[in-house]
């Protein structure tokens, strides 16, 4: 599973990307967030308030119930502020 972090999520985690192999119990975005929050102090800071986090699975906007699997590219980031 390939993870990408952007903006302040990247700054708090301390990484722009990483490859991980979560346990099989992690089946969706919400489960992945809970798993990641326990991974390091930086991750914990980034995911402290999941309501402030948005997610994309394979470059499509996702929600907490979106399934995730070992081959997926999953990105976490704050609400977007373009334009």
């Amino acid at each position: 599973m390939h993870l990408l972090y952007f903006a302040w999520v990247r700054q708090r985690v301390g990484l722009g990307e990483e490859d991980i192999a979560p346990p099989p119990a992690v089946r969706d975005v919400a489960g992945l967030v809970a798993f990641l929050a326990a991974r390091s102090p930086g991750h914990a800071a980034a995911f402290a308030d999941p309501r402030q986090i948005r997610c994309a699975v394979n470059q499509e906007f996702a929600d907490p119930t979106t399934p995730v699997g070992p081959e997926d590219e999953i990105a976490f980031f704050p609400p977007v502020t373009g334009g």
């Binding site: 903006a7 302040w8 919400a30 967030v33 809970a34 999941p50 309501r51 986090i53 948005r54 997610c55 929600d63 907490p64 704050p78 609400p79 977007v80 502020t81």
Partner: peptide, 18 residues
């Protein structure tokens, strides 16, 4: 500082509570 999304943009906010 990171620019915060406007309140109106949060209408589509994801809900993470399980």
């Amino acid at each position: 500082r990171w620019v915060e999304a406007k309140a109106a943009d949060d209408a589509a906010a994801l809900r993470w509570a399980r």
